[in-house]
Amino acid sequence: MAVADFVKSARESFRVGWKIESNWTDPVLFATYQIIRPLASLLIVAFIVIIGASVSAAGSLFYNQYLAWLIVGTAFYAYVLQAMLGMSLLVFIDRNRYEILKNIYISPGTLHPYIIGRGLVSVVNGTISVVLTLLFSEAIFNGVLHMNIPLNLLGVNLFMLIPAVILGIIGLLAIGYMLCALSIVANRMEFILGDSVSGIFFLLGGVIFPISLLPGPVQAISNVLPVTYFLNTVRESFGLLPVSNYTSDLALLGVTTLVALALGILVFRGAEQRARKLGLFDRKSEY
C-alpha cells in the first residue's frame, strides 16, 4: 500500500473517530468532560500528598517537590489512559455495536491505517487533557493555594519534551495496536484488556511514586516498560529529575518503543491470520 494512500486512509479514520468521540455534545461540554476526569485523578494524589504533609515531620520542600513530580506524571499518564482504553475498545465497538469491522477489513484501506487514525484521536484527547491539567495545576496549587511548587510551565525545555512525547506516543500506539489485535481474537475481554494494561502501567510505570520503591524483581519489569522512560524524560524536560539522565532515558525510550512496535506488528499479524481462519471479523457476542 502506497504511503500516500495509507496517510489518506489514516486521516479519514481520524476524522470519523473524532466525530464519533466528540459530536455527541457541544465543544465546551466535550472539553469539560476531557478535563474533569484527569483533574480529579490529579486532585486525589495531590490531596494525599497534602494530607501527608500535614501529619508528617518532613519539611514542606520535600512535599512541594514531590507534588510537582506527581503533577507532571499524572498529567502525562492521560496519554496512557486514552490510548489503552480507547484502542482496547475500538474493535469491540466497531464489531459488536456498529457492526462495521468486516466492512473496514475488506476495504482497500484495510484495518492498519484505520487503527492508527483512531489511535491518533486518543492522542489528541490525551493532549487536551495534559495541557488543561497542567494549566489547572499551576492555577490551583501556585495561584490559589500559593504552595510555591517548583512547576514552571514556561521554563519547560521543549527540545527535550517534544522528542520524548513523540517517542512515548509511538510506543503507546504500538501497545494499543497490540490490544486491538488481541481484541479481534478475544471474546468479552475488551474492558479487561485496557484496564489491565493501564493499571499495570499505573503501578509499575512510576506515575505516582518512584519505581525504586518497588520490590527488586518488580523493578525489573518497570525497567522494560516504555512508560517508565516516557515519564522520566518528560519530568527531566520539566527540570524535575536530573537532566544528566535525559540522553540515556531517551535512548531507552527509543529502544523499548522499537520493541513494542515490532511486537505490535507481530501480534497483529498473528491475530489477523487467526481471525481470518476462524471467521472472527464478523463475530458478534453479547453479554
Partner: peptide
C-alpha cells in the same frame, strides 16, 4: 485483581510520603 493494581499504587504512595 485489577483494583489491587491501583490500590497497590496508592499504598506505596502513602509509604513514600510517610503516612
Amino acid at each position: 485483581g485489577l483494583p489491587i493494581l491501583t490500590i497497590g499504587a496508592y499504598v506505596i504512595l502513602y509509604h513514600a510520603i510517610g503516612l
